[in-house]
Amino acid sequence: MKALVPVKRVVDYNVKVRVKSDGTGVDIANVKMSMNPFDEIAVEEATRLKEKGALTEVVAVSCGVTQAQETLRTAMAIGADRGILVESTEELQPLAVAKLLKALVEKEKPDLIILGKQAIDDDCNQTGQMLAALLDLPQATFASKVEVADGYATVTREVDGGLETIKLKLPAVITTDLRLNEPRYVTLPNIMKAKKKPLETVKPADLGVDVAPRIKTLKVSEPPKRGAGVKVPDVATLVQKLKNEAKVI
């Protein structure tokens, strides 16, 4: 059984992002980039399934600029067997990525597609669902536990009311949540091994996919700065301020 794991190159979650002065987007010049944390969880889960014997091959896929090869190498250092980069300098929106992944799925014929529920840069939370719709495959989103056996995947997913467990016939699409696992620390020997693993590069045109943006970003702005707190001498003053100034009671 084969798993396809899409991974995205994003601004590292430890970096404080800055909005461009013209408000057209986020400034990523000279900013540390890394793998989207939810996708890292997906790679870890696929690797664990392979170690359990449920999978025989894990293929990491990334769509974006040439530097995304580094993200794929990280995925291979975690446990992916090979990587595929769909190289493009265009702004790749969720629908375009889903169409690129659909073309790769039709080519690779994986039994399982597992990816992060969302990327921390755009927070769209759309690619997995769009991919499942385009492929007409069963899907399980926000997975907190995954078990694969006998041609089925049993997925425990987080919902507003608690947990929901569903059973999917493979092939299927699964998106991962934070509590699914904790990704392993990537060791230096595994980083060196990852450099020798095969990495294929293709263009969107090779897959016959139009990646032209469908959505236009009008403006990006930072959230308003929080005002400074104040100390009050007693409870009566606190209640007065909450009632008359904050107007929350």
Results as ranks from 00 to 15, higher is better:
P183G: 02
S144W: 07
L242W: 01
R226C: 11
D136E: 15
P94I: 08
E158I: 09
L180T: 03
S221N: 08
T71M: 05
D12H: 12
E70S: 12
D206R: 01
A75H: 01
L242K: 01
A246Q: 00
D121P: 12
A140H: 00
P37Q: 10
A246Y: 02
V15S: 06
Y152I: 15
T154G: 07
T176R: 06
E200V: 05
D111T: 14
K219T: 13
A132L: 08
L100K: 05
Q69F: 14
Y13L: 10
S34E: 06
S144K: 13
M35G: 09
N14W: 11
N244Y: 03
V17Q: 08
I114Q: 09
E51N: 06
M76V: 02
K2P: 09
E90R: 10
D22F: 01
C124I: 08
K32Q: 12
L218H: 15
K32A: 13
T237W: 08
A140M: 00
L135A: 05
L104E: 05
A140E: 05
L104Q: 01
K107I: 10
D177N: 14
A153L: 11
K16F: 09
L168N: 11
L178G: 11
V26L: 12
K2H: 10
A246W: 05
K52Q: 14
V26A: 04
V173G: 02
G79K: 00
V186S: 04
D22M: 04
D123N: 14
K99Q: 15
T56V: 09
M33D: 08
G208I: 07
I215L: 12
D234V: 06
L238K: 05
T156N: 05
L163K: 15
L104A: 04
A80P: 00
S221C: 10
Q240K: 14
L178D: 10
V59M: 02
E200Y: 11
L100W: 06
P224I: 02
A119T: 15
P6Q: 06
Q118R: 13
G151S: 10
R18D: 07
G64D: 03
A68R: 06
K241Y: 03
L137P: 07
T66I: 15
N181E: 11
R18T: 13
L238D: 00
L101D: 02
L168Q: 06
L207A: 05
V146D: 02
P189H: 04
A3H: 04
K247E: 08
L134Q: 13
Q129H: 13
E51W: 11
V155Q: 02
A132V: 04
L131Y: 12
A172V: 07
V148Q: 05
V19R: 04
A140F: 04
L49P: 06
M130G: 15
P171C: 05
L207G: 01
G227Y: 09
K109L: 10
P110E: 00
T165I: 11
P94G: 13
R214H: 12
P6M: 02
L188M: 14
V239M: 03
L49G: 09
K216G: 05
I215S: 12
L101I: 07
A212C: 02
N190E: 02
Q67E: 14
